[in-house]
């Protein structure tokens, strides 16, 4: 009985996502993904001269809808400076519920996406990153090493009331060649709907 309980305890306490560790290389760098422009792209190809922001995202999560205006403004500010942005839709179990490739194209047009938006058909990228929710951000430097992971900022619903622009600060520090002062943050989000 005691043994059973210990086993159960190990099972239940192990049910949390394991995110990619800081300093890790881009996972599955050469895996090609369909991108809404009609081309296929890998993360290695998406990497800019100064780095890459990978955002696990979707069309259907209210948290994404609240934050995505900042995807656009940050991409507009930092892509010309060599850091490219790519959003990845890993909601494999929601392709019939608003997260199909066609829905992604419509969504990107509607919200003025100015960055790559790619499909992760079987949620393999999300699994390789240890991504669990949307939006969830991973920032890689020019060498493809993870330097920041977590949230965009500390206020999803009210951009004018943001006190800590986590990702923007990390981008500025990366471009200035400084270590990232807050390399890991957290925010609530919608669970990624993994392939069943």
């Amino acid at each position: 009985m005691h043994r059973k309980m210990i086993l159960a305890l190990c099972f239940f306490t192990g049910l949390l996502a394991k995110e990619l560790i800081l300093g890790a290389d881009i996972p599955l760098p050469d895996r090609k993904m369909p991108e809404i422009s009609g081309q296929e792209i890998s993360l290695q190809e998406a990497l800019g001269s100064q780095g890459l922001v990978v955002i696990f995202s979707c069309n259907t999560c209210p948290w994404v809808k609240a934050w995505q205006d900042r995807y656009v403004s940050l991409a507009a500010e930092y892509q010309p400076r060599g850091i490219r942005f790519i959003a990845i839709n890993s909601n494999a179990a929601y392709r019939e519920k608003g997260d199909s490739f066609a829905d992604m194209k419509t969504h990107a047009r509607q919200y003025g996406y100015n960055f790559l938006y790619a499909l992760d058909p079987q949620s393999e990228l999300a699994k390789a990153f240890g991504a669990s929710h949307t939006p969830q951000v991973f920032l890689f430097d020019a060498h493809g090493k993870l330097v920041y992971r977590g949230a965009i900022d500390d206020n999803a619903r009210h951009p004018d009331q943001v006190e800590r622009p986590y990702l923007k600060n990390a981008l500025d520090e990366l471009l200035a060649g400084k270590p990232i002062s807050l390399p890991s943050t957290k925010a609530l989000g919608c669970s990624i709907k993994f392939a069943e």
């Binding site: 669990s132 929710h133 949230a151 500390d154 957290k186 925010a187 609530l188």
Partner: peptide
């Protein structure tokens, strides 16, 4: 409470995913 403080206060190894 802010997300970060709430998550860390309740369970530091929770990623923020709901439920």
């Amino acid at each position: 409470q802010s997300d970060q403080a709430f998550i860390d206060g309740l369970s530091p190894d929770w990623s923020g995913t709901l439920p």
